[in-house]
Simulated assay, not measured.
Amino acid sequence: MKLLVDELLCRQNEFIGRQVTVTGVIFVNLENKSFIKTTRESELSINVNYSFAERLLDVVPCYVGGEYLYSDECEIEGRLEFYNNELYLNELNFIKIFRDDEVFICPSKRPIDNG
């Protein structure tokens, strides 16, 4: 089941500790912060494990000169976790980036995790 970020936030208690597939817009900045929102204008977001960013750089060209390396439509599969009073997607299995007419897939041979 694919969920938008807002849908997942409304039903987060059902999915904490479980693998989920989330669609939205991924934002990755130079300050080791990444998060996904339903739309660019949405105020609510879910943090995304930043350790995937280096792998993403190998697969998807980043934007240069702006606030974000990435701000693209995406689909992410990972485990929803809650700690430090925030929601996170960890143990990422893949990230798909949709840009113009292209789809970039950043798979993981093993889950992308904090460790």
Rank of each mutant, 00 (worst) to 15 (best):
R55H: 09
R55P: 01
L56S: 03
L56Q: 01
L56E: 00
L57S: 08
D58T: 13
D58M: 12
V59H: 08
V59P: 00
V60W: 01
V60F: 01
C62E: 07
C62S: 12
Y63E: 14
V64R: 12
V64S: 12
G65P: 02
G65K: 03
E67M: 09
Y68D: 08
L69D: 01
L69S: 01
L69M: 09
Y70G: 00
Y70F: 07
Y70E: 02
Y70K: 03
S71T: 06
S71R: 05
D72S: 07
D72E: 13
D72K: 03
E73M: 09
E73K: 14
E73Y: 11
E73R: 13
C74I: 05
C74T: 07
C74N: 06
E75I: 09
E75Q: 10
I76V: 14
E77A: 11
E77M: 13
E77S: 14
G78L: 05
R79E: 15
R79D: 14
L80R: 04
L80K: 05
E81P: 04
F82E: 09
F82P: 03
N84T: 07
N85D: 14
E86A: 15
E86N: 14
E86G: 12
E86F: 12
L87Q: 02
L87E: 01
L87D: 01
Y88Q: 06
